[in-house]
Nucleic acid binder design. Structure first.
Lengths: 357, 357
DNA sequence: TTTTAGCACTCTTTTGTTCGGAGTGCTAAT
DNA sequence: ATTAGCACTCCGAACAAAAGAGTGCTAAAA
């Protein structure tokens, strides 16, 4: 394939780019005459027609029906995105908007991601996606217990990613403030740094032994810890700006739109897709490149948010295959830069924060 | 109005109900002939036509155009919901589904609500909504500080509603474990039970005085507390199953659908609507009854989730005005019952839990 | 006085037809 | 290798006609 790309003459590239641009702009098939007008090419429409026929043969273009113009194929888009794109410079206004909104939301990572995807959606007029990938092999770095009543305490856990989760626990046997402290101690001693499947029976037994008479508390606590680790494992995804999709004619077909919304609701597919991507850079998935069947005439662009080598989340854009890639890429790039700044700058007074994951 | 309702003859009621039922079923206008066939009435279509004309005059029916059948008006639906509805009995299968899913999700209230709205959406085939109303005048019952490093601690707050919020704090001046404990102490002493606007300067001053040399810590902490209270104040709303909407012809008009999705995205309107409702019972808002302009041909049904007299959240259903009210009401009723059970039963081993709001 | 049958009328929806435009492919000339 | 020209194809808009559904009204029946 790469060698074929090389094989494209300068003029073919120009024509291909012109077609993709025009199709992104207008949505319909693009004809030879149109290109001739909106592009300074020193040749006639007939020549363009010939070139287009060749481009079609090579797989970069498609023809909806015999006497229609050409539409970029998946391969055509891929080529466009990979090599023809003109970087879109964000306006200062847009940059200011990003700064304002994200600064204001400087809070939990969830909130930042959500705000970012919202913003991305509004800036680009496509659908925004905020993703928190499932954190596999997560562990707990610190336990803390808040004693409330004789049968009621709150178990708090600080995870290895720095986020804090809590759970209310109601005990069958009465506890005291001191007992709660002791329990916290035992938990910290034995479970620190362990992930869900590293908590083995021997460890539990030892903890029970150490708690003596109150060993029943251990069991309850362990169960809660386990639940907690599992919850952290789940991954989340939130979508914003679906209404934007409706403005594009490709989604005026109710059936397909419904299918697309369906996959957006199910979430697993996209969540998998994003978390399986090992690249830390922007990914562009066009149409059926992404095993998710439904996305045939859609494209998904996303950028992971990375800190200290760990992927904490991702923001993305979902839109029609003919989306304005230049703008989308620039927007995501800009946003992710801001987010990374925001969560990287630890020396503030308010400080970065992570609430319940 | 009530007197007008009274004025409806038995036959008029029967006809009205038949029309609403038929329209809910089919979606289109309902004609006199159709009613005659699907209803055992001892009269002819002409009589029915006369009755329908009268019902229209009284405001219960509408005619899309001169020679079409009749469609229930807003008033017609209202009457139907208020007095004609046959309670829909949930199948045991549905009940089992509810139990399974909710039990499994027994975790944070957010999660329960979300799961419930999801379930409601699937059971009814409309769009589900999970709402956490803004908790005005919320206060913090307990502070706790987890010391991490010399310039980094986690501030944890247990709110009056029992949920737990946390924030990482990075300090400008170095702290110690002991100092962190002292700070927690001061916070607990002075801020317990206060809402955001009850934290006055004198209180802050006194706290600073009490902290002596380390008074700068107080300021930073207060700011965090303040942020935290504000975040709690926000209210949240999540939507599931928008794809269901597309199956109803009333939403095949892209423009209107887009508007509706727009209001769903904005959230404030619906959030206001729900939190302003003082009833603890199921509310049914039909069309323009709810100031939200867009919902002209939609209806919103929601049920608050109440515990100890406090509204903790709400689950709802959004769908076309001609929705299957019987089923929707029964589903929400069933779900809310289960949720109330779930969060009410405090004496379990795993226990109810509230993570970061 | 209420109900009913019958019929004329209205409005929508569907279907078929026509027609123009846009765009291509091909061929022959440059 | 490029171009002009032309025949051909296909789609979609516009229009007309027909079919269907349902009403309102009138006059007769109960």
């Amino acid at each position: 394939m790469a060698s074929e790309n090389r094989g494209l003459t300068e003029r073919k590239k120009q024509i291909l780019k012109a077609i993709v641009d025009a199709h992104i702009e207008g949505g319909g098939p693009v004809g030879s005459k149109y290109i001739l007008q909106n592009q300074q090419l020193s040749c006639s429409s007939a020549t363009i027609r010939n070139e287009m026929a060749e481009l079609e043969e090579m797989g970069y273009l498609e023809q909806p029906h015999a006497s229609a113009g050409r539409v970029p194929s998946e391969l055509g888009y891929r080529f466009y995105v990979d090599s023809l794109i003109e970087r879109y410079a964000m306006t200062t206004h847009e940059i200011a908007q990003i700064n304002d909104l994200l600064k204001a939301k400087m809070g939990e990572l969830d909130q930042i991601l959500l705000a970012a995807s919202n913003l991305a959606s509004n800036l680009t007029n496509y659908t925004g996606i905020a993703i928190k990938p499932p954190v596999s092999a997560i562990s707990i770095n610190k336990f803390e217990i808040i004693y409330l009543e004789s049968d009621h305490y709150i178990l708090i856990a600080v995870t290895s990613t720095g986020s804090v989760k809590s759970k209310h626990v109601h005990t069958a046997t009465p506890i005291s403030q001191a007992l709660a402290a002791k329990l916290a101690n035992v938990l910290n001693q034995h479970l620190k740094g362990l992930s869900a499947n590293e908590i083995t029976l021997p460890i539990i037994m030892e903890m029970e032994a150490q708690m003596g008479y109150e060993s029943s508390l251990v069991n309850a606590a362990i169960k809660v810890v386990y639940d907690l680790l599992n919850e952290l494992d789940e991954g989340e995804m939130r979508v914003s700006g679906i209404d934007h999709l409706l403005q594009y004619p490709e989604y005026s077909d109710v059936g397909q739109l419904q299918e697309l919304l369906g996959t957006l609701e199910k979430k697993e597919d996209i969540l998998n897709l994003v978390s399986r991507s090992e690249s830390q850079d922007i990914s562009v998935l066009i149409g059926s490149e992404s095993e998710v069947k439904v996305m045939n005439n859609s494209a998904l662009v996303f950028k992971p948010i990375v800190k200290d080598g760990k992927t904490l989340g991702a923001i993305g854009i979902l839109g029609p295959r003919r989306m304005d890639y230049a703008k989308v890429l620039a927007t995501l790039e800009g946003l992710s830069g801001n987010i990374t700044n925001l969560i990287g700058s630890n020396k503030s007074n308010g400080g970065e924060s992570n609430g319940g994951n």
